[in-house]
Amino acid sequence: MAHDVQDSGGVRVVSTAITIHRPQREVYAQWRNFPGLPRFLQYVESITEEGECSHWIVDAPGGTVEWDAEITADVPGQVIRWKSVGDADVVQRGEIRFEKARQGSGTEVYVTIGYRPPAGLLGVGVAKMMGKGPGKQIDTDLHRFKQFMEYGGIATIHGQPRGAAQHDEWQEEQEEDKEQKAREAQKEGVPA
């Protein structure tokens, strides 16, 4: 987890890396299953695949953003590259590379994403989603992916008890949990 952010000509490029203690092919295969990615990608609502194209719907503060992406390279076990096509809300291109870890038996995962945030309120929302330091959300999502790969679940304290000073937050989380459960019930049947 060590991200680097650069801006060039209105395009923001974020690159980061994480080591996952699972074999290369397994890590690749889990990531390549796009419809399963919303499990780790906190703000991604859904991804549907049609041939070489996938449709992404993302919850951003201020509204939903959507785009179609096409795969520009796909080498099993090694690399996936994509770019947005058509009239995307967030114009972007990205790469995820999988290399055999030099330490231990895991996989080094390198991610580079270049994106042009939308203008206006939605742009603010997207910026907010990307965190105060851009790249924080990508690191958070990759850490969630790592947890899923290595442990099979994602650590949380959502809904745990706490004192009166945090009562409002607690109540909010209880409601979010209810909504989440309802959504999951609805999603049943979507292949993981």
Binding site: M1, H21, Q103, K146, Q147, E150, Y151, T156, I157
Partner: peptide, 21 residues
């Protein structure tokens, strides 16, 4: 389950902190 826990370096666990980032 993580790299460090497998090495018995439990206090360096990479997964247990939801706020790791």
């Amino acid at each position: 389950a993580c790299y460090f826990c497998k090495r018995l370096e439990f206090s360096a666990c990479e997964l247990s902190n939801p706020n790791a980032i």
